Amino acid sequence: MGSAKEYNVTFQNLSQKNMTFEQVFQHITNFMKKDPSGKFRLMFGTDSQVFNHYTKFITGIVIQQERKGVWACIRKVNVPRQMMNLHERISYETTLTEEIVSLFTKEHKEQLINIVLPNIYRGANFTIEGHIDIGSGKRNKTRVFVKEMVARLESIGLEPKIKPESFVASSYANRFTK
């Protein structure tokens, strides 16, 4: 994987368009620095929607401080065909999440950890989660992919979350796929 510049990856939210990865990272660090003794969750997740001539994928990045608010943005990717195969679509959602997580280098993660580190004894906390829009319920068609996708996210150091805990994929990103 190359840098965000090589991929020409841009992000947006309701107040800003065409943010670079470095701008996104700056927003996350600024958000955390406001209250470095907070409990933070950095969460990633992708959802998709099939349309007539393309499939839209939305990857969300959310930094949440427990009971204090969030800052979030999305990346949009359109594939110029209908991806009807469920395994292919779920797998590509996971790939897009992995791609964005890969932009957060060891140095980036250390910078974020170092914001809360001096405050650990005062309850500060920092976790990184990967949210997958799949569930393990008996009626859920995606349950057969749970082990595979969870293992992929664990292998890159994320704490995987599936439905109903995977709200970045199933709620936040989902809103922008419509």
Rank of each mutant, 00 (worst) to 15 (best):
S3E: 07
A4L: 00
A4V: 00
E6M: 11
N8A: 11
F11Q: 02
F11I: 05
L14N: 12
K17I: 06
K17Y: 00
T20S: 15
E22P: 03
E22G: 04
V24N: 05
V24C: 12
H27T: 08
N30A: 08
M32L: 05
K33G: 00
K34M: 06
D35C: 06
P36C: 06
K39V: 13
F40C: 09
R41G: 05
M43C: 13
F44E: 03
F44P: 07
F44V: 04
F44G: 05
T46G: 06
S48E: 05
N52W: 00
Y54D: 10
I58N: 01
I61H: 00
V62K: 14
I63Y: 09
K68I: 00
K68M: 08
G69F: 06
G69H: 06
V70H: 05
V70W: 02
V70D: 10
W71Y: 13
A72G: 10
A72L: 08
C73S: 09
I74N: 04
V79T: 02
V79A: 01
R81Q: 11
Q82E: 13
N85Y: 10
L86Q: 10
R89I: 09
I90A: 13
I90R: 12
L96I: 06
E98I: 05
I100V: 15
V101I: 12
V101M: 05
L103F: 15
T105E: 09
T105H: 09
E107K: 11
E110P: 00
E110C: 01
I113H: 10
N114I: 07
L117M: 09
L117A: 15
Y121S: 15
R122T: 13
G123A: 11
A124N: 06
T127H: 04
T127A: 12
I128Y: 10
I128E: 11
H131N: 10
I132V: 14
I132C: 11
D133N: 11
S136F: 02
G137A: 15
G137N: 13
G137I: 00
R139Q: 10
N140P: 01
N140K: 12
K141V: 09
T142F: 07
T142A: 15
E148N: 14
A151E: 15
A151L: 07
A151R: 13
E154G: 01
E154F: 01
L158G: 09
L158Y: 07
P160N: 09
K161N: 11
I162F: 08
I162A: 06
E165G: 02
A169V: 07
S171L: 04
S171M: 04
N174S: 12
F176N: 03
T177C: 14
K178M: 03
